[in-house]
Design a protein around this nucleic acid. Structure first.
Lengths: 337, 337
DNA sequence: TTGAAAGCGCTAACAG
DNA sequence: CTGTTAGCGCTTTCAA
């Protein structure tokens, strides 16, 4: 079908010039006679001509491709996010090039480079480990539009985020309303901007309630199930009656760890997670958590990036999406004193 | 989007010709003086120059890209598989183009077409809905190497799979050994080859044990958590003392559904899943399941594809990876009569 | 040791 | 209505 059929072959066989073929096949051939148009299209089909993408891109400058760099596609948060981007991209006739950088800055730098090489029209970077140097060096130098997600505020560009501060406040406020006074927070190492804001929200809400912030109650661990599991003992030691975890994955790890120590949720300890991954309503007890519109975030991210591609000098856009507390069965009234 | 750093920019700044830059940066510059080589590389770094892939590819031919089509990247099985491919691809300096076709044949056909246009060197198709016509029309006609995963046996090409038949036998054998006699199977609609073989394994093992295969005990539902959840009542109605589910996601849905009906796992009913997703040891009770080397499967898939790309006429390779039964807490001895 | 020049296959001004 | 002519950014002879 493809093989070696080039535009000249079509042109020759149809008895016209390459321009004619090019224009007609690119939908810009209204000025040509109906007859010529038909003939060209017919020869195209006959020969099975398919334009060479590389040659075409070289001229047009756009590959209709965007790059997405995330830490790990196996993480539900990111895969949902990617699905959102994908959906929007597909509607805009773009193809997303998805790469998992695994939190490895070297690999990520390499990926950024490879994506630029492939003349992506823009980049969505959702990995906190891509650093400013890489961005300045490659993206700015090459004038590639990009969008950072959940990143430290190292840049003044477009941004889509969810209201992490408010989300954390809602979670803590819920626990306070249930009568909990000693509320632990399970946070992570090297928190990115969004995680920092959840931490701030936690503290702010406690202060608003007239309680003190006790740093002993803030535990750090890795952001996955294992991290939650490993933190179980530390959490138990705090003697808190409730825990707010910085994401659902950790909460699920905590479920297991607490269970192994003979603690019942929510009877012995209440838990509120963050993310509302689809698993949250399948664990037992169903997890109370803060829901972020992750899929929508992906869609908005693509839209913002596309706007930026089409209009490089427009003022930066910032979209902050609202979050929502989903109350399920892992949080319960505190009956202690 | 111009303003990209081009090879001439590097050449000018380094005070050499574009040829010199090209040769040096492509590792063919041994004939140039050490000093020139250093200088060129340094200027490259300074400017953040990245060669344009389209221009390069136009000349060189290979895009060092493979396409991967899967149903849904948010499914843990596929995301793990993709991670495996990704890892192997990265080592081979290839970039994977990942697309979720969502089980939509039209969309998938469109993706196949787009991937071919992008001159991918090969394709891994892990979606059961890509049909033979699409394959013949696009892949064979364009002589693009491809690899099918978990697909119906519509082709004689390379293949990587796991031993589904044996895996199912192991699961059922385990339940039989625990004294279960009435074992239901939770299967799926329109099973693909791998799922069919699990069904066959289930039947075969029952027959080997001298039991009859009762079609009433075979329930069909969709392959996700919701599918498992929705099938709960049907499962309960069978009166089986144990269930073998065709994947872990469904098992987790079943956990919830059975729980809502007041049934305890494994006291009232034993469950064995399939896949050993990382969640399996975080649910309560921890799920007994069949472990497939999914990540490795991804790696092998890339390797086979690469072999095929490099050697289009070599005989087909078939790799079948072994599976393993992981016994946890969701299966228990049956004390009924 | 180096560089000038010839394309790769295609699109798009600009003439007819 | 149609064709001529320049490139796009890069690699690769081939000559200096």
């Amino acid at each position: 079908m493809k093989g070696k059929v080039r535009i000249v072959d079509v042109a020759k066989k149809a008895g016209v010039s390459v321009t004619t073929v090019s224009q007609i096949l690119n939908g810009k051939g209204s000025r040509f006679s109906q007859e010529t148009q038909e003939r060209v299209r017919q020869v195209r089909d006959e020969l099975g001509y398919v334009p060479d993408f590389n040659a075409r891109n070289l001229i047009v400058g756009s590959a209709k491709t965007i790059g997405i760099i995330i830490p790990n596609i196996a993480n539900p948060f990111f895969s949902t996010f990617v699905r959102g981007v994908e959906t929007a991209a597909q509607a805009g006739d773009f193809i997303p090039l998805i790469l998992s950088g695994d939190g490895n800055p070297d690999l990520e730098r390499q990926y950024v480079e490879q994506l630029i090489q492939r003349t992506v029209d823009g980049l969505i970077i959702a990995s906190p480990s891509v650093d400013q140097a890489t961005i300045d060096h490659f993206l700015k130098a090459n004038q590639i539009p990009y969008l950072l997600i959940d990143q430290n505020p190292i840049d003044e560009g477009d941004r889509v985020s969810t209201d992490d501060f408010e989300g954390a406040k809602m979670a803590v406020s819920h626990l306070l309303a249930l009568g909990h006074k000693k509320i632990a927070m399970l946070s992570c190492y090297n928190p990115a901007l969004n995680q920092k804001q959840r931490l701030e929200g936690y503290k702010a809400q406690l202060l608003e309630a007239g309680l003190e912030v006790n740093e002993q109650l803030i535990i750090e661990s890795s952001l996955d199930k294992k991290g939650g599991y490993n933190a179980s003992e530390a959490v138990i030691k705090t003697g808190a009656s409730a825990v707010f975890t910085v994401n659902d994955e950790m909460a699920i790890g905590l479920y297991r760890g607490l269970g192994e120590h003979g603690l019942k949720i929510p009877t012995d300890i209440s838990i509120v997670g963050y993310d509302n991954i689809d698993l949250a309503e399948y664990v037992s007890p169903k997890l109370t958590t803060v829901s972020q519109p992750v899929f929508k975030m992906g869609q908005v991210a693509f839209k913002l990036l596309l706007d930026r591609i089409n209009n490089p000098h427009a003022p930066a856009q910032r979209v902050k999406l609202p979050v929502e507390l989903v109350i399920r069965d892992s949080s319960q009234r505190y009956y202690g004193q």
